[in-house]
Simulated scan of single mutants.
Amino acid sequence: MRNRSNLYKTMLYSPPNKRWNEQTADPSKYPQGRFNPKPCRRCSTVFIPKAPSNLYCSQECSDHAWTTAYLKRTYDIDYDHYLSMLAEQSGVCALCGGEGFKMAGHHRLKLVVDHCHKTGRIRGLLCHNCNRALGLLHDDTDVIRKAIGYLEGETSIRKGSGPKRAKAQGPR
């Protein structure tokens, strides 16, 4: 059974259950018998909601708002700042140059925000693999240098000193 904090986190990080165009309610079940026009919380366009809880005029505004809320809560930036960082990096990972990918169906961003865990300073946008690699190496530049040396062949093991293969012997 989930405790309250886990349930709260699930509610915070989960996208809405229904997409904007799927939200519907029966106006006749409400006292006024209709839904009053209201301004979109993102772009201020006046629209007639499909349900009282409908806060955005379109799926685009809804996605933008949910993504901004996540980025603001987690990294203290908004979606427009993320998009400007993405443009500065030409839409690719700062390390490998790949375009990234979405880890799950509810994710909206292909590249993740990489930040220093000690200072909280944002370093750039990385694909999930590069971000995970840095995390697994504890963001330690000495370990990363050793990994580079290892990959380039600067190890203490001489060539040819690996395990010898047993020769197949014929029948006796």
Rank of each mutant, 00 (worst) to 15 (best):
D140R: 03
C127F: 08
L151N: 02
K164Y: 01
L136C: 07
R145V: 14
T119C: 13
I122V: 14
R145S: 08
L134W: 01
C116S: 14
A133S: 15
R123P: 09
D139N: 03
D140W: 00
G162R: 10
S156R: 13
I148Q: 05
H117I: 04
L111A: 12
G160D: 06
P163W: 04
G120T: 14
I122C: 11
I157Y: 12
K167E: 14
D140G: 00
N129Y: 06
P163I: 13
R123Y: 11
P163N: 06
I144M: 15
K110L: 05
K118E: 05
V112R: 12
K167R: 15
T141W: 02
H138V: 03
L111E: 09
L151F: 10
K159E: 13
V143S: 07
H115M: 07
A166H: 09
R121M: 07
R158D: 15
I144E: 07
V112E: 12
G124V: 11
I148D: 03
N129I: 14
G135M: 07
N131F: 10
L111T: 06
V113S: 02
H128N: 15
A133M: 15
C116I: 04
R145I: 08
V143M: 14
A166F: 08
G124Y: 11
G160V: 13
G120S: 13
K118H: 05
R165G: 01
V143H: 04
E152W: 02
R165K: 13
D139A: 02
P163E: 13
H138F: 05
L134T: 01
L151M: 15
R158T: 08
G124I: 10
R121S: 11
H128P: 02
C130A: 06
L134I: 04
G162S: 14
R132H: 05
